[in-house]
Design a protein around this nucleic acid. Structure first.
Lengths: 209, 209
DNA sequence: TGTACATCAGTGAACGCGCGTTCACTGATGTAC
DNA sequence: TGTACATCAGTGAACGCGCGTTCACTGATGTAC
């Protein structure tokens, strides 16, 4: 029963694996339309791709596996975006700022994928897809710590604890990304002013009074 | 069909309204157990209270109304907590800090109720329960702005824009509250050090370099 | 003080729906000979 | 070059479940007389 109007050509022999990517794309589409990972159901995904529901089992062992894969891909994409932003600048202050900007840009461009990185009740039972060890040791968080450390090394920050400052900055970036996505009608100050304030005040200041 | 082991005494005449509160409490219980408002279903709530599902219709027009009421109550409770914290201190710096502490305490004590304040896909279709106008004009956000303004008036902050600084501080508090709830295993620095850093750097500093 | 009765606080069965998952299957396609 | 066939990519029907909502109802309880 294909109740959608989508017609799909069967993959050629040996190209069956392509369907896996189509399934992931359809799941992200559902996530973006509803803002809730709960709408990523096997049957809804199948309808969107234009296949029957059981076909998904050739590619994912169960319904949650699709969401797990989305989370994994999202974390990888975020990391790539942060590393690319870092490598595009050489001056330490600009580097740090570019990393923060890239973080917010990613969250703004993909608010739903960004959100389920941190809170995905569908998966919480048991395995965390991106473990804390992954996060702390990753290039994603490392970009922030290194960015601050570079500013210190260049004499641009009186900070003495780049990890601490990176946590403070990450915290604020996450809050900004989340609130801006969830409360777009709030009378936000200009984006660059707020980003500048968070970056400079949290990463470049001396220890609190 | 009462499949739970709960036995419940029928309310006495004239006390039928009590069931409304029991329904809300049961819904919050479900929310806390699963971390997802999706588990607040009419039937699950009814099972938990020990009544039949249709009984709920005497108190709420539909399933979403329960969640809407929880959001309303949560916003009211948060506001009360912030105002109480503010009124417990008189010295401006301690007042501001107490408000921030109360905000984080509330989020830590009720992470799920706190979260659905900002993101509740179940409800997003149409009405926002707590509007942005409510938020900005509320005592909840006003506590922060006033706290900063008081510090400025007392000569304790060189800031010139209490609203801007309140947004920056709120942003960071929200990020901290959210991440701490969702990533408790992250190697967080000591709580009071981080809270001090966020408060003083974002609210008490001069304009960014 | 006794009793009829209106009202209140719920109940129980039923409806149609979408869900995850299973199972046996089908038909096109590439390949061995 | 032609053809049999193994394999691949997917189908369709069915299962049992929990869901929101509707409907007609029931039985206890307070009250009017």
């Amino acid at each position: 029963v294909n109740s959608s109007s989508i017609t799909r050509e069967r993959n050629r022999r040996g190209e069956g694996a392509k369907l896996g990517d189509e399934i992931l794309a359809a799941a992200v589409g559902l996530l973006d339309e509803t803002g809730s990972e709960e709408s990523i159901t096997l049957r809804a995904v199948a309808r969107r791709v234009g296949i029957s529901a059981p076909s998904i089992y050739a590619h994912f062992p169960d319904a949650e596996a699709i969401v797990r894969e989305i989370v994994r891909n999202t974390f990888a994409d975020l990391t790539v975006a942060l590393v690319a932003a870092r490598d595009a600048e050489s001056e330490p202050l600009r580097r740090l700022r570019a990393g923060c900007q890239a973080y917010l840009d990613f969250a703004a461009a993909e608010p739903n994928r960004y959100r389920i990185l941190f809170h995905c009740p569908m998966l919480d039972a048991g395995t965390e897809v991106v473990s804390v060890a992954d996060l702390v040791g990753s290039n994603a968080f490392g970009t922030l710590v290194d960015g601050i450390a570079d500013c210190i090394a260049a004499g641009l920050s009186p900070s003495t604890d780049p990890f601490f400052d990176a946590v403070a900055l990450w915290t604020a970036l996450h809050g900004y990304a989340s609130l801006q996505a969830d409360s777009p009608n709030f009378p936000w100050p200009p984006h660059s002013a707020l980003l500048d304030a968070l970056t400079s005040r949290l990463a470049l200041v001396p220890k609190p009074v």
